[in-house]
Design a protein around this nucleic acid. Structure first.
Lengths: 205, 205
DNA sequence: TCCGGTAACTTAACAGTGTTAAGTTATCAC
DNA sequence: GTGATAACTTAACACTGTTAAGTTACCGGA
């Protein structure tokens, strides 16, 4: 029959996969369901994606660049102090995770054996988000706002702490009585405080 | 036939499930495989556990009490300062996660829809681990070592940061070049620093 | 000794999953 | 017209959790 151009169908598969991911969640995303939705047999998808992992990789990359756009728009706000810009980045990261739980899940919470060997070029793009954090941290080091430390190490630590908050909220492991916004806000403040020079004295307390 | 006493078989199921969980991981843990291993049909398991979720809940509870024993042994080390005891608790938590990745996964990383409504009594036991952290924090508040803050809030934040580190290591999201031990050590230090009073002055920088 | 009940267990089935091998059809270049 | 190729499908494999219905084996009471 051959009615669809190769790239057209590939895009339709991806669009449908994204829609189903967001509406039903990763656990219910199946090749057969995607196929049914676009009116093809399940095996057709395998003509455009090697397997389910590769399809999910494409969705992960979409999520990574969505997050990147949001972080970029926040980190470019000049005129703000370095500390505030780092705080904004952290806050934006958390908000992205809570706003896009399905994207967040496949990006950062899927078991590694579900996304076999994430390709190097995509991984490089994913790392740009971390580099955004690292560059702001480096600025802070230069301006004596943060302690001198390998910026990628510092960024990784800050990221992991934000990830802890987001993932525990998404996987519903926090006590229901806990004020999540409070946890988020305090987390961001405490993380940043942990990297500030020791001698800093604030007016309060 | 009825050769096994009810409780004996229940224990055998659980033992086998635990063994398979640890050796093959949660993703490959199946009712049929457990059954095959103990020489019964798969449906026999349903005479002792309502469904797979409930079986996993039992394993989660095992993990929770294993972790509890380890945290207890660390928090009871009197003679140590409060700061060091909090650090030891954090360190013990991380080590537990890295040493027992399969337990850790079902305890804190499984998607909530996979463990439908974790029963309240088990949840209470799980919270005791957090309370261990909280009580050490409260001691620190009393001794002016940590800032005054709702101890359960502080404990939740500290926990979430440790969870971030553990889960990103287990799900292999950190850059391979990153020194994980460094990340762990710095994370613990920075987290604690974030809760220390502002005016503290150290000898180094 | 026979009868009913029950506990322990099994088989068969449902509705799904990712994935591969083999088969079909339509179009296009020569 | 012929052969190649792209696009697509059907059937199958080996799994999954779970339920309904069926089968034994034993045990207390008449």
């Amino acid at each position: 029959m051959g009615q669809e151009s190769k790239n057209g169908l590939q895009r339709r598969i991806l669009d449908t996969a994204r829609r189903l991911l967001i509406s039903d969640g990763y656990a219910r995303l199946s090749m057969r369901k995607i196929a049914r939705e676009i009116g093809y047999s399940a095996t057709t998808i395998y003509l455009h994606f090697k397997n389910k992992d590769q399809l999910v990789h494409a969705l992960i990359e979409e999520g990574v660049s969505r997050l990147h756009r949001r972080l970029l728009s926040r980190s470019n706000q000049n005129g703000e102090g370095v500390r505030k810009r780092l705080r904004n980045l952290c806050s934006e990261y958390v908000v992205f995770g809570l706003d896009n739980p399905e994207y967040y899940e496949i990006m950062y919470m899927l078991h590694p054996e579900n996304l076999a060997r994430y390709p190097a070029d995509k991984y490089r793009r994913a790392r740009k988000n971390l580099e955004l954090l690292a560059s702001v941290y480096q600025e802070g080091v230069d301006g004596n706002v943060f302690q001198r430390l390998d910026p990628m190490l510092a960024a990784s630590i800050i990221w992991s702490h934000m990830h802890g908050v987001v993932s525990l909220i998404l996987s519903e492991r926090f006590d229901a009585r806990l004020d999540k916004d409070r946890v988020i806000g305090e987390s961001i403040e405490r993380v940043i405080r942990g990297f500030e020079p020791e001698h800093r004295i604030r007016s309060t307390v």
